[in-house]
Design a protein around this nucleic acid. Structure first.
Length: 176
DNA sequence: TACTTGATTGTTGTG
DNA sequence: CACAACAATCAAGTA
């Protein structure tokens, strides 16, 4: 029991989720945002509140992008299938709609493999972030110490996240 | 930019 | 100070 929730009285994210869906796009909802709105002003861009920083963060080529969600993983495959069935349709919106519809049609078990894949990506993402984080610390010297200090392979890179490997799934193996 | 949904992230708010 | 929950942006596919 967590005494009380955060700022809002709504302890159910479901309610919000519904709202989000209702609105269609989660943009400028202005529902319970009165609070953070004061500070964030309009929208909290990418990380930084100041538009100035916005570009800074956006210009980070080393910054790992967000991992694809289960839906995106599914989309990747769906796109291929959709393309074969609809070679004429190359609009991303078409695949998005069709994919979204199909996605909802799938059962939890069917989404399971996709979620598993997405989960794996998430782990990798966190790992990349770890490296990215470190980089930020030693940015003072060199961004990529590839010649001086040579670090062949860091095996125990897992901080606290245990990664489960599926032998049956295709994974990136070792690179020599 | 169009569109999909999920996730990541950031900020706020209360205890 | 820390957790919790919301709120907004972004992630890819091509013309």
């Amino acid at each position: 029991m967590k005494v009380s929730k955060g700022r809002g009285s709504k302890d159910k994210n479901e309610a919000i989720v519904e709202d989000r869906k209702s609105a269609g796009k989660r943009k400028a909802v202005g529902k319970v945002s009165e609070s953070r709105n004061s500070s964030s002003s309009s929208k909290r861009r990418t990380g930084s509140v100041n538009n100035f920083e916005k570009q800074a963060s956006a210009k980070d080529p080393n910054k790992p992008k967000r991992p694809a969600s289960a839906f995106f993983v599914f989309l990747e495959e769906f796109r291929k299938v959709y393309k074969e069935e609809n070679p004429n349709v190359k609009a991303v919106s078409a695949v998005g709609k069709a994919g979204g519809e199909k996605w909802k049609s799938l059962s939890s078990e069917e989404k399971a493999p996709y979620e598993a894949k997405a989960a794996k990506r998430k782990s990798d993402y966190q790992k990349l972030m770890n490296a990215y984080n470190k980089k930020q610390e030693e940015e003072d010297d060199e961004e990529e110490p590839a010649k001086s200090s040579k670090k062949p392979k860091v095996n125990g890179a897992k901080e606290e996240e245990e990664e489960e490997e599926d032998d049956d799934d295709d994974d990136d193996e070792d690179d020599d």
